[in-house]
């Protein structure tokens, strides 16, 4: 089993689903953004509430309460598991069976923040996130929640605009199909030399009259992406 950061779940229907787990660094930064947003809201509304005397102070205290305890819960439950900070890092909270986070689980993980914060600066949370397999802080462990990257970005197909699709004459496994597609999309911006080098590896498998292995592999990749011409 190779090392990876994937959470796998088998549905009752026997289908494997997976999600890519998000770890300490992006989560910390997302938290910082949320923290900043909360501070700004409290400051701006605090200034407005100053004009309402004691009643304003009361409203401000309620606002602090809401920002401290309910801000993450409300966003996670009603905005698809994403607080604004998480959204900016393209991560979201989900239940550990990969369903959208439930209200109860979100409340548990956010109430238990109190435990993660201890003794200072989220140190327990940091230790927990670094040492558990699924990067869970204490609140996540108790609530049974994960933080994962949301849907991968749509692929950029500009690399195959001028390539002619070629129907493969071979039976390709899923992994091989993915390799052809990735080659065609040139996800990593490989150099032309490197592309040729890789394509030449499978030269014996290609039809005998293939002149340019790179073009052939890219063409098949394009065809596999669903383009028939």
């Amino acid at each position: 089993m190779k090392l990876d950061t994937i959470a796998l779940v088998e549905t009752p229907e026997g289908i494997d689903l997976q999600a890519e787990l998000a770890g300490l660094v992006p989560r910390t930064l997302a938290y910082c953004i949320d923290f900043f947003i909360r501070m700004m809201i409290m400051m701006v509304l605090g200034i407005i509430f100053m004009f309402f005397g004691k009643a304003g102070t009361g409203l401000w205290l309620i606002l602090i309460f809401v920002m401290e305890w309910w801000y993450p819960v409300l966003f996670e439950v009603f905005k698809g598991g994403q607080t604004p900070g998480k959204k900016s890092f393209n991560i979201k909270v989900i239940n550990d069976d990969l369903t959208p986070v439930s209200f109860g689980a979100s409340l548990i993980r956010n109430l238990l923040r109190t435990a993660d914060v201890l003794p200072l600066f989220y140190v327990f949370g940091i230790i927990s996130m670094s040492s558990t397999k699924h990067f869970q802080r204490l609140g996540d462990l108790a609530a049974g929640t994960l933080v994962v990257y949301s849907e991968p970005e749509q692929h950029d197909s500009s690399a195959i605009k001028n390539v002619a699709a070629i129907a493969p004459q071979l039976a390709l496994s899923e992994d091989q199909q993915v390799a052809f597609v990735n080659f065609a999309l040139n996800k990593g911006r490989m150099s032309a030399d490197r592309q040729a080098e890789i394509a030449e590896i499978i030269r014996p498998r290609l039809p005998l009259n293939t002149s340019n292995a790179t073009d052939y592999v890219r063409g098949v990749g394009k065809w596999l992406l669903g383009s028939k011409h």
């Binding site: 004691k54 102070t57 009361g58 205290l61």
Partner: peptide, 15 residues
């Protein structure tokens, strides 16, 4: 007691 200090205390108790 004035009602605005009631509201203040309400906020305080919640927080």
């Amino acid at each position: 007691r004035q009602s605005d200090s009631d509201i203040m205390m309400f906020g305080f108790y919640i927080y």
